[in-house]
Every structure is written in structure tokens, then in C-alpha cells.
Design a protein around this nucleic acid. Structure first.
Lengths: 218, 218
DNA sequence: GAATTAATTGAACGTTCGTTTTATTAATTC
DNA sequence: GAATTAATAAAACGAACGTTCAATTAATTC
């Protein structure tokens, strides 16, 4: 046999991508063999090399596509929010919702960095820090506006990223909480972490008017 | 050649364990070959099988030993703290300090769960949940005592674990912050997350005396 | 409908994998 | 110092690895 009836390059490419994400997310890039991937797709191993030059490019493509989609989706979402507090809440909602909806993508992006070649790693790391930087910008903005009380911005940014990304470790769709319930819980936790002041307090003055004696709100 | 002069089973075993931890932490269990490990130790690949029946047992042994050491160390530390708030702070300090001191162990424990056989995974997962349960117990205790204000205990427990464990991703010993400075920052963040009340407030009444109208502190 | 292009198979490449077997030497015991 | 045990080396096992190549057939173009 050779070309099969009804064969279609685009369909096969999509099938390869989908199967690869499933497999890499479940057993890991190193553990996934090309024969395993081919079987999942329903083709011979050699067919893969019409679509990717090698295994590494497949991983890189999956991760780059994911990061660019993530960044694009957040940029779109970011435009809607009004005010720091709402923008901060929007970020957390977005982050958790996106992570829950594209679990495999996110899991791969978090776990397979070490399987990337040096060049590819540099590119992905850059995209990551762009994304995390957009959260940091919100924290900066919140401090400027006098809405947040943060001791160490970089550290707090990382804490929030770690906390919210961690949802993917335990969240199951059939759990007691829906994705948006989880998200709202994390919005509350996030607001605590950044020391968000009561809305009235901000409205009354912002950073130029001290809120009273320098006592933390907890 | 066969047995080498000065050869010692205990030393070789320790060398294997140390090299394995280094390698697995850096490149991953699947990516580490037995020949690579042997070379790192300075023996032939076959020598390994005097100490472990196979590669999987090595990974399991590394992870089980780590979890048991972690649990033991926390039990010892847990006895010292007085009061919920201090016990909570002690947990965070301990967790971060331990993670920073045994980076490879912790990294392996977090990354290589999927490389464990089903039986071994069940054992490690049990040890993990015992450890995480000890944090949950502190949150329970804090709520009981009226010292904490927590909406969802299970979720908050996981948030704290994720947040503090995440330190390992970015912490470098030569960074601007020392391990204990980082730990103190996270203690503050942790206290915010659990809605820890001001010490005077607790002293004045505990949970039986309402702190005022039911308004969150932020 | 012939020529061309797209998609895939089947077989094989050399390499590396985890592991086993056997032989050999060092250290310890008696 | 002979017998025993401990610790290794050396070589090989079959299986699996990522990848390449040539042949073949389906779909498309002209």
C-alpha cells in the first residue's frame, strides 16, 4: 500500500498534533515513542516526517503555538477590564479558565521545558516571561494607584502565577467546584495576596491620601 | 578486570544515589540512560544491578526516601511551634527552607510522578497527601481558634502548597534574596491567604467574640 | 486520460536502550 | 593461607529507538 483513499494532509497534521498533545501530556515527551504516536494517529511512523522534520520540532511547535495563543487570548481579554482591581481579577479568571480548558497544552508547557533544545528553550522562556510580565504590570499599576499593598512585586507575581497554575494539578471537571467557582475563589485569594484595599478606600483618595496609620489590613 | 581495589558497596551505593538524583533532576528519569548514570558514578552499567533490581526501583527509592525524610523533618519541627499562627508560619518556613536545601529531591518528587509504576505511584501519593494534610490540619485549627478566615480550606491548602513549592522554580542561591528572606516573605503572603487576624484581636476573644460587622478585612 | 503532485506504506538503517550472564579480582573470614 | 564472600568488569542479549529511503497509490491538474 501507499497513499490511502481519503487521505488528507491537513487532517493528518491535525490528528498528529492532537495525538501528540494527549500522549506528551500523559506520559511525557521522552517516554512517547514515534511508533506509539503513529499508532495513535493510525499511520505508519514514517508518515510523521512529512509534517515535521523531527520529534523535537513537534514539541517546540506544540509549545510555541500554545504560548502564542495564550498571549493573544489574554491581550484580547485585557482590553475589556476597567480599573486595576478589575484587571487583576480578570487576569486570574482568565488564567484559571484557560488552564482548565486547555489542560494538556498547559501541562506540556510546564513540564517539558527541559526537553527543548537550547535554542527552542530560549524562545519559549521569552514568551513565558512576556506573559508573566503582564501580571507584574498589573501589580505595578495597582501599587501606583494605591490600590495594592505589596512588599516584593517580583516575588508576589511568582507566587500568584504558581498558585493559580497549580490548579491544573488537582482540578477535575467533575469535582465539587466548577471552573468558574474555583476561579472566583482564587480571585479572592489573589486580592488578599496583593493586599487589595477596600474599594471605597481607593475611591476616597488613592496613593496620595494615606489610608491611616501604616497598619496592614490583616 | 573485576572487583577494583578499594571498592566498597556502601560508597558505591551512595555514589549511585547522588549521581542519579543529579541526573534525574537535570534531564529527567526517562532521558537518563543507565550508561550515563554508570559513567557519572565511574563504574560499568552492570555494577548498578547489584544495588537495585532495575531502573524503576531506583526512582521509587529516591522518591520514597525523600518523602519520608520530609515528613520526619516536619514532625520534628512541628513539635516546637506554639499556637496556630506560629505553627502556620513554621510550616511555611520549614517548607521553603527544606525545598531550597534539597532542590533535586524536591524537583524529582514534583516532576517524576508520572514515571512511577502504578503501585509505586500509589505509595508516593499517599505520603504526599499525608504531608499536605498536615498543613490542612493547621488551617482547620486556625479556623477553630478564630485566628483564620478561610472560605475553602481544601482549596486554600492547595494554593499555599503550590505557591510555596513554586519557589523552587525560580530561587537561586546567589539571587538578591536569601532563602530565609524568601521564607519570611512567603510567611507574610501565607498569613494574608488564610486571613490571619491581628494578634491582639485573637488575644481579646478568639472565635466566640465577633470582631465586628461581618466585613472582610480587605 | 495522461502527467503531475500529494500522501502514505513497508522495509530497513545504525544506534541505543535496560538488563543478564559469566568471569575475575579484592576483601574478609576462619 | 585457604576458603568464602563482596564487588566489579566485560561482553552480549533481544528489543526498541528516531529516522531515512524507495516504491506505490490516490488525488489533482491540464
Amino acid at each position: 500500500m501507499a497513499r490511502t483513499t481519503g487521505s488528507d494532509g491537513e487532517k493528518t497534521r491535525n490528528a498528529i498534533d492532537a495525538a501528540a498533545k494527549r500522549l506528551i501530556a500523559r506520559i511525557g515527551y521522552e517516554a512517547m515513542s514515534m511508533r506509539q504516536l503513529a499508532e495513535e494517529v493510525g499511520v505508519q511512523p514514517a508518515a510523521f516526517y512529512r509534517y515535521y522534520p523531527n520529534k523535537q520540532e513537534l514539541l517546540f511547535s506544540v509549545m510555541r503555538d500554545h504560548m502564542e495563543r495564550l498571549l493573544g487570548a489574554w491581550q484580547q481579554e485585557n482590553g475589556k477590564a476597567q480599573g486595576v482591581r478589575e484587571r487583576f481579577a480578570a487576569f486570574i479568571r482568565f488564567h484559571i479558565q484557560y488552564h482548565v480548558e486547555r489542560r494538556d497544552d498547559v501541562h506540556i508547557a510546564n513540564m517539558e521545558l527541559r526537553s527543548l533544545s537550547a535554542d527552542n528553550l530560549a524562545i519559549i522562556v521569552k514568551l513565558r516571561s512576556t506573559y508573566e510580565g503582564s501580571l507584574r504590570d498589573i501589580l505595578d499599576e495597582g501599587i501606583e494607584a494605591g490600590a495594592f499593598d505589596i512588599a516584593d512585586i517580583a516575588l508576589t507575581t511568582r507566587a500568584i502565577i504558581a498558585m493559580t497554575t497549580g490548579v491544573n494539578v488537582w482540578f477535575r471537571a467533575d469535582d465539587r467546584l466548577t471552573a468558574s467557582e474555583v476561579a472566583e475563589n482564587y480571585v479572592e485569594l489573589g486580592l488578599r495576596l496583593v493586599g487589595a484595599k477596600k474599594i471605597e478606600t481607593i475611591a476616597k483618595g488613592g496613593r496620595d491620601v494615606p489610608v491611616g496609620p501604616k497598619i496592614r489590613s490583616f
